[in-house]
Write a protein that binds this DNA or RNA. Structure first.
Lengths: 192, 192
DNA sequence: CTCTTGTCGAACACCAGTGTACGAGTTACG
DNA sequence: CGTAACTCGTACACTGGTGTTCGACAAGAG
């Protein structure tokens, strides 16, 4: 209801800035507004005309990234054996994490503390739901809090992204490694 | 052989700067040289007299941190059942990770890429040795590369540090959570 | 005691980024 | 078409950091 009053050419600029920003920040989390404007084929002034500050731009890009990620994740089949569902979820999440790694860094130091986590609420809830179901069905461990398991998953995936960036593993290997690691970590401890 | 020619008073300054830097960077990874000098009770000029650049100062602090960490880690008993040894190693490493978390961040963006890892060589080798032994004794899995397991351990510990900093878990809970998670993740997958 | 080494503060040059102001030119939209 | 919306480049003010220079002064070493 706010939007109808934007001229077509302004909308094009905004879109161009958003995609250019996504691309630049994905390469270098510290990319400057000049860099982004140039990449968008737009004057720096125009950029500030649409986004009051660098922070708000980063926020917008991040929001968009989460939204498109959510769309992908929403199509993952989470029914059936929770272990298989988790495998599928990892397979999809993983690509997103790898892709948006640098953008996340940008967000972390341009946005107020807590904002990143706030925007992650939806994807996190999805994981949590799956884990809870797995716990209820006795295929995931219940001796650790669900939130901790979520955090472990998060960190292992981001760790894998670092390893790739450093050239120590390849993109192909990552998903199976992550899956093998997390399935083991999440299994109920066998009583000895 | 280089050192004997430093005046007592200069040595005091250097020490003060080093400890102040450790403290400041531990609070805020982006702490400025002014801040550090002030905290050390020393002029900014004096600081630059001993450390040619901010980067070299950070490097020196980091080197020192690793060294004292290594000292602690060197006292951990790594004999006996590798699982127990790993538990003890985690217990010790964990405190170090938590303590030096912010310093690590400082190092990561002040030092040339690869330098951080280079300085981590010793502690990483220690972990690797233990894991290799565990693999040889069939208590740790061999279907994933050792280097991956090391990375997982690293990331889980750092993840725990974030959780603490965000106030979602307490320092007490961390070690048992980490241990429980890693022991499960590292166990050989049971043939089904 | 003397001379070298170190310390101090203030000032300076420099850089890179952010955000703003201005005025002229262009483009969509009705 | 005409007007309002948009864009552009240049230039500016401001901020906050880094690293250097200077000259005066203190303090340790022999």
């Amino acid at each position: 209801m706010t939007v109808t009053t934007r001229r077509a050419d302004a909308q094009r600029s905004i879109a161009a800035i958003l995609t250019a920003a996504a691309e630049c920040l994905g390469r270098d989390p510290a990319a400057s507004t000049s860099e982004i404007a140039k990449a968008a084929g737009v004057g720096r002034v125009t950029l500030y005309g649409h986004f009051p500050s660098r922070a708000e731009l980063v926020d917008a890009v991040f929001v968009q990234a989460i939204a498109t990620g959510e769309e992908t994740l929403g199509q993952v089949d989470l029914t059936g054996d929770p272990r298989d569902a988790l495998t599928r979820l990892i397979e999809s999440s993983w690509h997103l994490v790898d892709q948006y790694r640098a953008l996340l860094l940008a967000a972390q130091d341009a946005l107020p503390p807590g904002r990143v986590r706030e925007l992650h609420a939806d994807p996190m809830a999805r994981v949590e739901r799956l884990l809870e179901r797995g716990r209820a069905e006795n295929v995931f461990r219940t001796d650790l809090p669900t939130s901790w398991l979520v955090s472990v998953m998060h960190n292992v995936m981001h760790g894998a992204a670092s390893e790739i960036q450093a050239g120590r593993i390849t993109s192909d290997q990552a998903a199976p490694y992550i899956t093998a690691t997390l399935l083991a970590a999440f299994a109920p401890p066998k009583a000895e």
